[in-house]
Structures are given as C-alpha cells and as structure tokens.
Design a binder for these strands. Sequence first.
DNA 1: TTGTTATTGCGACTTAGTTGCAATAATAAG
DNA 2: CTTATTATTGCAACTAAGTCGCAATAACAA
Lengths: 131, 131
Amino acid sequence: MKRRNTQAQTDILNVLKFTDRALSHEQLQAELEAKVDRATIYRVLNRFCEDGLVHKVMDEDGKQHFAYCAGCDKPNNKHQHNHFHFKCRKCGTVECLQHKIHIPLPEGYVITDFNGMIAGYCKRCAEERDV
Amino acid sequence: MKRRNTQAQTDILNVLKFTDRALSHEQLQAELEAKVDRATIYRVLNRFCEDGLVHKVMDEDGKQHFAYCAGCDKPNNKHQHNHFHFKCRKCGTVECLQHKIHIPLPEGYVITDFNGMIAGYCKRCAEERDV
DNA sequence: TTGTTATTGCGACTTAGTTGCAATAATAAG
DNA sequence: CTTATTATTGCAACTAAGTCGCAATAACAA
Ligand SMILES: [Mn+2]
Ligand SMILES: [Mn+2]
Ligand SMILES: [Zn+2]
Ligand SMILES: [Zn+2]
C-alpha cells in the first residue's frame, strides 16, 4: 500500500521530530496547530510505527505514547527499542532514556518487543518537591 | 481502614499464590471456582497492591496483570519490583523473570515505580513455531 | 484533466477499568 | 448470644482510550 503525503502526517511527524519526548495522543493534539481528528491521529501514528519512523510506549496507566525514532540503528520496523522510558508523575512528560540496555532472556525464549517504563519525578519536579 | 477476611479475598489470593504467573482480571476470574464480580476483583486486587501482597504490571496492550509478591525483599508497598516480565504473544501468559535488574537513572531523577515488559514467545510456544 | 484509491472526519462501537449506591456480612462491643 | 458499626460486595451506570465502518476528500499517476 503506497503512502501519500498529507498535511496531517507532516504536521504530526514534525511535532514528534522536534521534541525529545514521547507524546500521548492528547499531548500531540495540543501541539498541533490545525485540528486533526482523533481517529486520524491514531491512524497516522500507527502507520508511522509500521514504517519504523516512530515507536510506541505504554505508560503505567495503560496510555500509549509515541516517540520519534532518533538513534534507532536498524531501518524500518525491525529495530529494537532497548532503552527505558521515564515518566514524571508530576509534569507528565515521558522521555526516552538514551542508555541502551541489555535484556536478559531465559533459554529458549524469543523476544519480539520491549517496553520499559520508569515512573517517578524528573529532575526539575524532584527539586521543586524538595523545597 | 481495617481489613476484613472474606471468601473472595482468600480465593483470589490463593489463585495468585499458587501460580508463577501474573494474571489479568479475566485470567483470574477463570481460575476462581465461585463467581466474583468484576468490580470486586479489581477492588480486591488494588487493595492487595496497596498492602504490598501483590504487584501490578501493565502489558503492551495496556492490560493490567497481577502477580503475587514472592521474592519481594522489603515489606509493605515499599518494595521495588526491579525485575522484568515476559508476555508470550501466543499463549498469553505473563511471568515474572527472576533476574533482578539495575535501573539506570539520570542525575537528579527519582524513581517511584518500574514496569518492564518483554513480549515474544515463551520456550514452549517458540519451539512449536519452529516446527 | 481524470480515475484510482489512500487518507480523512465523523459517529458508533469496544474493552478495560472505575464509581455510586444499596445490600450483605465480618468483626467488635455489650 | 445479640446488636451495632462499617468494610466489602454486587449491580448498573459510567469513563476513557482506542478502533472501525463508511462516505467524503484529496494525493498522485496516467
Ligand atoms: Mn523511546
Ligand atoms: Mn513480577
Ligand atoms: Zn516532571
Ligand atoms: Zn507461550
């Protein structure tokens, strides 16, 4: 199925490309100038995931977040996202932690995907709490 | 708020205690002899989590799974669950991987919780696929 | 310019989980 | 044992995230 260039898609990709965060559908919507339908946003994001432009992470509340694939070595959707994500309980931002991790696997098991989410307080919010 | 002993609670805790898996609400329901209301199951499980008897993990589909706290060092809900979970895409089981992991954190960040989920095929299902 | 079909918007739908409320029952007090 | 207190349950209604069918729109290739 051949892909076409549309406004919605380029807008969405640009938002993701120019942030270092993983955004929920809601957060993404807020960053978009033009209003784009909810279903469309999800369809675009899922297409990006299939194409390996973007990766999806699940937060501890069961909400999906999407991040631009920056340092992803392999092309297409073949690359593994073996890094953790950090979600701040206060400001709600989800970020990709750059540190690559090694995933231990029992003998005979096969991995297809990985989702690692750390929850807590980011530096900024942690400092505010200390006060 | 003082806790009371009820049938539903002991049944649910027993199911979790005698399996090495993390169960979704649905899987748990299926293991219960007596029928227990969906809302009650969730309420019981959340209470167990608060009390540190059980821990909750989110799978990559955004579905909650609950596992008995076996090797959890610290008491109450203060302990960290610094181990990965593995979900088989074929048979659907979620298991706690015993290997304790170290979670890398940027300077100044504070962790409160961790959710690590590996998806793939368990040994049994992987072997069937090879055939 | 026109035809094909990928993409969009809208509304309806699904599924997981939560919540309000009245009924039930565990525990403590008398 | 009897009664009072209130944690727990079941039910139904609700919420929120995400998906899907379908008709309208618009890329893009011919
Ligand atoms: Mn990431
Ligand atoms: Mn576990
Ligand atoms: Zn923060
Ligand atoms: Zn399996």
